[in-house]
C-alpha cells in the first residue's frame, strides 16, 4: 500500500511546508549513473544533507534533444556504464532505505514506452519515486501516462516554455501535478552567463493560470543568480552547472562528492532564508 507521504502528495507537502515558512525550494539535477550509480547514490544523500529539497535524477537516453553539451556528455558517461531505467528504479529503491527526500525522474518518453507505461507506474510507486518529467511529452500526448500515474499517486510534472501560448499554459496548468517546470529561456539545457528576462515573464504569466508551485530551470549556473529568481519562483532548478562539477572531478571520487555538494550548499544558502 502506498504511503500517503509519497508521490504528488509528498511534493505538495514539501512546497506547502516551505511556503508556510516563507522559504523557497532548491532542486538539483544530476544524471543517474554519471559516472556510476554508486556515486549517484552517495550524491543524492549528500545533496539532501546540503539542503536540497527535491532531487531530479536524469535517466539517460541515447538521443537527448532537449539537452545541451554538458548533460549530453553526462548522458554518454551514464550510458557507457550501462545505466537503464530499471537500474535507476533499483537505485531509488535502495535510496528509500536511507532517505525520504522527494525524488523526481527526468527523461525521454521512449524509455518509458520500452519499459511499459503500466509497469512504470506500478514499479515507480513501489520503489518510491515521487514524480516524473518527460522532456519530449507535451500535454497533448500525456493523457495515457497521466491516467496511469494518477491512481498510484505519482506526479506527471509538465514543462512550460517562454514560447507557450496562453491557451497552452491554461491547458498545461489544468493537467499539471506536483509543480510546474518553467523553462527560463528558449533553448536547450546548459549554463548561461546572463539570464534573459523571459523566465520572469513566464512565471508571471503562469501565476495567472495556476496556484501550483512554479520551479524555474535551464541556464541557471551561479549562486548569485538565485536570490532574484527566488523572488519570483517557488523553486530553483540547477542541472548543467552541477553536472559540470561532476565532469571536472571524474578522476577523484572524494573531490567529486565534496565539490558537487559544496556547490549545492552554496546554491541552497543563496536562497532567501
Amino acid at each position: 500500500m502506498l504511503d500517503n507521504a509519497r508521490g504528488t502528495a509528498k511534493i505538495e507537502a514539501t512546497f506547502e511546508a516551505l511556503r508556510k515558512e516563507g522559504r523557497k525550494a532548491f532542486i538539483p539535477f544530476i544524471t543517474a549513473g554519471d559516472p556510476d550509480l554508486r556515486t549517484t547514490k552517495e550524491l543524492v544523500l549528500a545533496m539532501e544533507q546540503a539542503g536540497a529539497h527535491i532531487i531530479e535524477l536524469g535517466v539517460p537516453f541515447s538521443d537527448p534533444v532537449a539537452d545541451g553539451p554538458v548533460i549530453q556528455a553526462a548522458t554518454s558517461r551514464a550510458l557507457d556504464g550501462g545505466t537503464t531505467l530499471s537500474s535507476v528504479l533499483n537505485l531509488v529503491q535502495q535510496l528509500r532505505q536511507e532517505t525520504d527526500v522527494p525524488l523526481v525522474l527526468m527523461t525521454y518518453y521512449n524509455l518509458l514506452l520500452a519499459y511499459g507505461l503500466e509497469k512504470f507506474a506500478q514499479v515507480g510507486a513501489e520503489v518510491g519515486i515521487d514524480g516524473v518529467i518527460i522532456a519530449d511529452l507535451p500535454v497533448e500526448e500525456g493523457d495515457e501516462l497521466r491516467e496511469l500515474l494518477d491512481p498510484v499517486g505519482l506526479a506527471l510534472i509538465p514543462l512550460v516554455a517562454p514560447t507557450s501560448t496562453k491557451e497552452r499554459l491554461e491547458l498545461i496548468a489544468e493537467k499539471a501535478r506536483g509543480f510546474i517546470y518553467c523553462v527560463s529561456l528558449t533553448g536547450v539545457t546548459g549554463e548561461r552567463q546572463d539570464l534573459p528576462p523571459d523566465g520572469e515573464k513566464l512565471i508571471q504569466r503562469m501565476r495567472e493560470v495556476t496556484s501550483l508551485p512554479l520551479a524555474l530551470g535551464f541556464g541557471i549556473s551561479k549562486p548569485e543568480q538565485i536570490p532574484l529568481i527566488a523572488q519570483k519562483a517557488d523553486a530553483v532548478i540547477v542541472g548543467s552547472a552541477i553536472v559540470k562539477k561532476i565532469e571536472e572531478n571524474l578522476n577523484s571520487k572524494e573531490k567529486l562528492l565534496n565539490e558537487t555538494t559544496d556547490f549545492v550548499r552554496q546554491m541552497v544558502q543563496a536562497l532567501p532564508q
Binding site: Y109, V139, E140, V183, T186
Partner: peptide, 13 residues
C-alpha cells in the same frame, strides 16, 4: 503525433 519539447509546440502549431 508530436513528441517534442514544449518550446517547439507553438512553432509546430
Amino acid at each position: 503525433g508530436s513528441y517534442v519539447p514544449e518550446t517547439l509546440k507553438p512553432a509546430l502549431e
